[in-house]
């Protein structure tokens, strides 16, 4: 096994994962809008069409519902499709196939079939694309039994989780934060998988647990660095998988730190942090809490266009700093 590690961007890591998967398994193919010669709306598929041909890197019409259904049907009957949405917001056009068909097919048919389907969703705000191209909707899909939902935060995990998703017999939804596509990080060469359903402790600490998703992991790590200089040791957990959620890692951390902040870009109410908080409130870690749980989520608003408003609509490093300081200092 080749274990050479290079610096790759998050987008390059995803592209490499898809190329490896297609080389390993003839059943794997890509579907999506403008993923061929255009290279994908975010250049993630890049030049894969030239390497693998139009039959395996298939441009679809602008038909999210139909396209998603085709992917479900192909997955049901022996293929391993990877379906790219141009923007995660467009999942709204395909919810029928994702939620009513892909997620439930195995259950409804009493286990007679599996739906080994991967869907990739460029997600999140920060690009000035406004309300219909900037949402974080992982909680919508995380609410559906039958789906698995992941949010890689690093190039390493973007590749490893995608390869794990392709190997998985069930439908896996991958939310890729658009602002991470250009972020570089160490990525091993060759095939490896990152386990679905397992969170990762990105920084250890004893004073406060910060559970973060996607780009918020990096904001939490930046905040943790500042907090360390102030004598506050924050533990940063990269959730990585929304469903199934890694309860053990979070519970163990909260028992250690006695304080919990959840940071996520999706709308705060009924979001991923609501589940993390409730899960802790129901667990034996509740008795260890020294302070109320804090949720830092997206504002109760569509994502606005103006760049300053846009920033204000999602949690930022100063928000994390303030919450952590207040928690540790007993300010309510």
């Amino acid at each position: 096994m080749d274990t050479t590690i290079r610096e790759l961007s998050y987008a390059q890591a995803i592209q490499e994962a898809m190329a490896i998967a297609m080389e390993r398994d003839e059943r794997v193919f890509l579907m999506g809008e403008d993923i061929g010669v255009y290279g994908g709306a975010f250049q993630v598929t890049g030049d894969l069409v030239h390497r693998f041909g139009e039959d395996r890197v298939m441009d679809t019409p602008i038909s999210e519902l139909g396209g998603a259904g085709v992917a479900v049907g192909a997955a049901l009957t022996g293929m391993r499709p990877i379906f790219e949405f141009q923007f995660s917001d467009f999942a709204a056009l395909a919810m029928e196939q994702i939620v009513n068909q892909a997620a439930k097919m195995r259950y409804m048919l009493g286990g007679a079939v599996s739906v080994p389907l991967v869907m990739r969703f460029p997600a999140g705000s920060g690009t000035g694309a406004a309300a219909q191209h900037s949402q974080s909707i992982e909680a919508w899909l995380g609410h559906v039994p039958g789906l698995k939902v992941v949010q890689p935060a690093t190039p390493h995990d973007a590749k490893g989780l995608l390869l794990a998703a392709i190997e998985d017999p069930d439908p896996v939804m991958i939310f890729e934060h658009k602002l991470l596509y250009k972020m570089k990080g160490p990525v091993p060469e060759g095939y490896y998988t990152t386990p679905i359903g397992k969170a990762e402790i990105r920084r250890e600490g004893k004073d406060v647990t910060i559970v973060a998703t996607a780009i918020m992991v990096h904001k939490a790590l930046e905040a943790a660095e500042t907090l360390a200089s102030e004598g506050i040791a924050a533990e940063v957990i990269d959730l990585r998988t929304v469903r199934p959620m890694d309860r053990e890692t979070i519970i163990a951390s909260v028992k250690k730190t006695s304080r919990l902040i959840c940071v996520y870009e999706g709308v705060k109410t009924l979001g991923v942090g609501a589940e993390v908080s409730a899960m802790i409130a129901e667990s034996d870690a509740f008795d260890f809490l020294d302070a109320p749980i804090v949720r830092l989520g997206g504002a109760e608003t569509p994502i606005p266009y103006n760049p300053e408003l846009e920033k204000a609509a999602v949690p930022q490093v100063p928000d994390i700093l303030k919450s952590a300081r207040d928690l540790v200092n007993g300010v309510r």
């Binding site: 519902l65 139909g66 396209g67 998603a68 259904g69 085709v70 992917a71 479900v72 049907g73 192909a74 997955a75 049901l76 009957t77 022996g78 293929m79 499709p81 196939q97 068909q101």
Partner: peptide, 10 residues
């Protein structure tokens, strides 16, 4: 209907 099209693609 789209699922049938996907099966036909397979």
């Amino acid at each position: 209907i789209p699922i049938a099209v996907g099966a036909a693609l397979s």
